[in-house]
């Protein structure tokens, strides 16, 4: 990879994600709790199919579809969902009794980072949905970096993490237009663009990113993309069951997904119908490309093998018998760090 020594990567197993958003909250409390960042979620989880965050992001453009840079739309704060304000004080202490109730003040909310949670698609009883956690893909070919006239977006040499150099950023927001995944936010207080930093301060101390380490569903694998002894390489390159989201955007993401399966569907009489999957193939192909069908087949075959009592390296990897093995060596317990003055 040009310009960098190694590339950090992540694999998320969508068959284990329960949509609890502990990742989202872990990230929020760590990085985006300060002023100007209230509406930011470097990590989000959305119910698919759905419009996601920002609303309708998949159709906003950007990236390099067909190899050519495409001008994308600049998402507005309302499309992400603003940090709503409430009237707690008035309700608790205002002396107005039942005439006021706790609610969003000002304009009624129309969208948020998880607005279409658990609604799903299809038609009952063949409804379907699954959860899709997202963060910056720390792309090998980052459209945001290319779009910045200030050269304010850097790909760190040590780990390939894509960061906004806030000393250089002037808030033009071309990065937000260019990123086809719309994972960059604008800080209206400090007037700079901000995004996921893959918890590089934690990586520097050997600690996995908060979203991964705090995931109770044990969904996320972390590590160097080229570490052949660790799960990432095995899942992405050896078993080929982890795929990038929207590969057609052309930015070469370094975040990969093990695609979801779903329970059997029903025919018109209510019989179990295994002739086709509950989640339509074309929908998964639209998200993960053609290779997704092959990946699903591999997963099904290996699972059948395990059910017969045979050993499956792939199933053992996904089970992750030892949680710390998911982090490619970034497995230090952060509470053991004692900060000393420089």
């Amino acid at each position: 990879m040009p310009g960098i020594k190694r590339q950090m990567a992540m694999v998320m197993d969508l068959n284990k994600c329960i949509g609890c958003q502990t990742c989202t909250v872990a990230c929020k409390t760590l990085w985006t709790a300060s002023e100007g960042m209230e509406h930011m979620f470097f990590n989000t989880v959305n119910t698919q199919p759905g419009e996601g965050t920002p609303r309708g992001w998949e159709a906003m453009g950007g990236g390099f579809p067909g190899g050519e840079a495409q001008l994308g739309k600049l998402p507005a704060i309302g499309e992400f969902g603003d940090a709503w304000k409430y009237n707690h004080e008035e309700v608790f202490y205002g002396g107005k009794g039942q005439d006021v109730h706790l609610g969003v003040q000002g304009e009624a909310p129309k969208w948020g980072p998880n607005w279409d949670e658990d609604q799903g698609g299809g038609e009952f009883p063949n409804s379907f949905f699954f959860y899709l956690p997202r963060l910056c893909n720390h792309c090998t070919h980052p459209a945001c970096k290319e779009a910045c006239p200030r050269g304010a977006i850097e790909k760190r040499e040590a780990d390939g993490v894509v960061v906004v150099n806030e000393d250089r950023c002037r808030g033009y927001r071309h990065c937000m237009e260019a990123c086809p995944y719309k994972k960059i936010y604008f800080n209206h207080v400090s007037q700079v663009s901000q995004k996921c930093i893959f918890c590089f301060p934690r990586l520097e101390q050997g600690v996995a990113p908060a979203c991964a380490r705090q995931c109770p569903g044990r969904v996320r694998f972390v590590g160097y993309r080229d570490d052949q002894d660790a799960p990432i390489w095995k899942l992405v390159d050896k078993w080929k069951v982890a795929l990038p989201l929207h590969p057609e955007f052309g930015t070469e993401p370094n975040v990969f997904y093990v695609p979801p399966s779903a329970p059997a569907r029903f025919d018109a009489d209510g019989r179990i119908d295994e002739s086709k999957p509950r989640i339509p193939d074309e929908y998964l192909v639209s998200l993960f490309g053609e290779r997704v069908l092959e990946a699903l087949q591999t997963l099904a075959d290996e699972r059948a093998k395990a059910a017969r009592g045979e050993r499956s390296e792939l199933m053992d990897l996904l089970i992750a018998y030892r949680w710390q093995d998911m982090f490619g060596g970034f497995d230090r317990d952060p509470q053991t760090i004692k900060w000393v003055e420089a």
Partner: peptide, 21 residues
Amino acid sequence: PSVAAQRVRYNDFSDIWREKW
């Protein structure tokens, strides 16, 4: 056992993030 790690002094933008954690 604990491990000593140095707090940073501000050099560039990235230290803002380091200081947060």
